[in-house]
Design a protein around this nucleic acid. Structure first.
Length: 584
DNA sequence: GCCGTTTTCGGCCCGACTGTTTTCAGTCG
């Protein structure tokens, strides 16, 4: 593969820009939708879509047809797409920034541009302050004020940034508790939306509820101390915004429609759109209120979600799978391939990656062991950082030898759990490790991770990683892509080549469960399992409390369609030990 | 622009809210 192969993220950005510019250009909405859908597919694809296109196979991906494949090829071969260049001539780049402001879409952006020459957020601010916006037919003073507020919010640093799943979940649970205290006593409130699907990063909180006093519940949300502003509370619910910039949607349903509402509000948008399209082919129309049968004119109301999917000829689809990644076809009762029996937290038998005082952890071996026992584990690998980690946390070879002794001593005293002597060894830029093999041989479990030199080229980074994967004493690769949720892109890496090497060598790849990492990301974890790679889910805990991070890794595994058979640390240690490549 | 157990052409999910209107368009999820 070419060293400078076009990255999926850059390709997806180009497709998103095509969507934006086509929208500005007034193209039929389905074309815009097609570009956005294609961009999403490319962004999620675990393999290089540009490389696929070169082989004429990108159009095998759902949502990518002959036309978009041609554009991908043009971009990878000439660095640009003719249609994109042409649209860029007509619409200044500032228009896209205006279009992204809440409450302003393509139509109004174009109106502002054609009527007032407004071509940037700053130009919009000037026009609004001079009250020229309200003079445009179709706009008014309310819109002018809303535009100013949107501009203001947009300049606040990180105003619209997403938060990681645990943060969002905790906030959502607090709100539910506050609503249960302040709202009507009969209210049953559940968390829906992207939190329920256990995504990596959350932009808003969706709540659904049943109560006999819906207005009172909606009013209670609008009145919470944490709410900065809210729409008009009604019997249907309310939309509000917290002081921290999170948007919160509450919707209320009748009890016999609760399943319809929960399904609708859990999403994803793409899942719902695909579900409804499939329903239309059966002459059924799905909404949050029920399923209308076109022929009888009757509407089926569902008290629970299972009934919604059953009415459409499908098995219940776990929320984590609702991303329009093939789950509808798999769930079909007639002719579907079946949904996976997803892994659960209780399937996990041990944790293979954690830190102690020996490096940058905040607890002793004994404390971490006690924590792991509380988790119900049968084993725990102590894997402190290695000889060149830096930040004052280096573990010299001699220090590691002493640490191994301490782990052995501690293990001898513990009945309930097996402590494994391990290390999280640095993969140096050339792919070698920073301990000698003689030392690694004494360890029960070796995790190899990249912690330095992130900005290498794709080919060099792939060679580095494959060399580590093929090392006979490396059991697992830690946080394989190096990405951090909402903070850092993955390093340039040919994941396909890494998966091939890992499957051949028998090296485990980690799903790091730290909620800021969740690495492998779920689409990549799914592709790895499909390539025959065995995975492990590790907490990477640096203190006792973060051993519980395992749940976020399991959530990623579920989103990756994994069963307990795909994840090696669902096995007891004797069986897992025998699976290590050095035991073969 | 994509796609096919109604279709290779003509469809393509559904509804709430807001602000601007006086019956609706735009935006959002």
């Amino acid at each position: 593969m070419a060293a400078t192969e076009l990255q999926n993220s850059a390709l997806a950005d180009a497709l998103d820009e095509l969507a934006d510019l086509n929208e500005l250009d007034g193209a039929v909405s389905y074309r815009v939708l097609a570009y956005r859908n294609a961009a999403r597919r490319v962004r999620e694809a675990p393999v290089s879509v540009a490389a696929l296109a070169r082989a004429g196979r990108a159009s095998e991906l759902p949502g990518i047809g002959a036309t978009i494949q041609e554009k991908i090829l043009a971009l990878r071969e000439t660095g640009t797409i003719p249609a994109l260049e042409k649209l860029r001539q007509s619409y200044p780049p500032g228009l896209i920034a205006i279009m992204r402001l809440p409450g302003i879409g393509a139509k109004r952006t174009r109106l502002l541009f054609s009527e007032l020459g407004v071509d940037s957020p700053e130009a919009l601010r000037q026009a609004a302050l001079a009250q020229r916006v309200r003079a445009v037919k179709g706009l008014g003073p309310k819109f002018e004020q809303a535009a100013l507020r949107a501009l203001e919010a947009g300049t606040e640093a990180g105003a619209r940034r997403r938060v990681t799943l645990p943060t969002a979940l905790q906030t959502a649970q607090e709100i539910v508790r506050e609503l249960q205290a302040a709202g009507p006593p009969d209210a049953r409130i559940e968390i829906a939306g992207s939190i329920r699907r256990a995504v990596d990063a959350v932009k808003d909180i969706d709540l659904v509820a049943v109560t006999v006093e819906p207005e009172k519940l909606a009013g209670a949300l609008a009145g919470l101390e944490r709410i900065e502003s809210a729409g008009t509370p009604s019997a249907a619910g309310v939309r509000a915004r917290s002081h921290s910039g999170l948007s919160i949607d509450l919707r209320v349903a009748a009890p016999d429609q609760f399943g319809n509402l929960l399904q609708h509000f859990t999403g994803s948008g793409a899942h719902n759109a695909a579900l409804r399209e499939a329903a239309v082919r059966r002459a059924l129309h799905v909404s949050e209120y029920g399923i209308e049968d076109e022929r009888s004119g009757r509407t089926l109301r569902c008290a629970d979600e299972r009934a919604v999917y059953e009415a459409l000829g499908m098995r219940f689809i776990p929320p984590e799978l609702r991303e329009s990644r093939g789950e509808l076809a798999a769930a079909a009762i007639e002719g579907g391939s079946g949904l996976p029996d997803l892994i659960e937290l209780r399937d996990i038998r041990g944790d293979l990656h954690c830190h102690t005082h020996a490096s940058d952890g905040k607890a002793s071996i004994e404390e971490m062991a006690a924590g792991a026992i509380t988790c119900g584990y049968g084993y725990l690998a102590i894997t402190d950082h290695s000889a060149s980690h830096g930040f004052g946390n280096d573990v010299s070879p001699d220090e590691l030898r002493r640490q191994i002794e301490r782990v052995r001593e501690c293990d001898a005293e513990l009945e309930e759990i097996e402590l494994l002597a391990g290390s999280e060894v640095n993969v140096l830029p050339d792919g070698s490790l920073d301990y000698e093999d003689e030392l690694l041989e004494q360890l029960d479990w070796v995790v190899a991770s990249i912690h330095t030199s992130f900005s290498m080229g794709r080919e060099e980074m792939t060679r580095r990683m494959v060399r580590a994967v093929e090392h006979p004493l490396v059991d697992a690769i830690g946080h394989p892509t190096g990405r951090k949720v909402e903070q850092r892109e993955p390093y340039a890496l040919d994941l396909d080549a890494v998966f091939d090497a890992a499957a051949r060598a028998g090296t485990f790849l980690e799903i790091n469960a730290n909620p800021d990492r969740r690495d492998l990301p779920d689409p990549a974890a799914r592709a790895a399992a499909a390539a025959g790679v065995k995975l492990v889910i590790d907490s990477d805990a640096h203190r006792v409390s973060t051993l519980a991070n395992m749940r976020w890794g399991v959530a990623s595994a579920r989103r990756a369609w994994l069963t307990s058979h795909d994840v090696a640390n669902t096995l007891e240690w004797p069986r897992l030990k025998a699976l290590r490549k050095r035991a073969r």
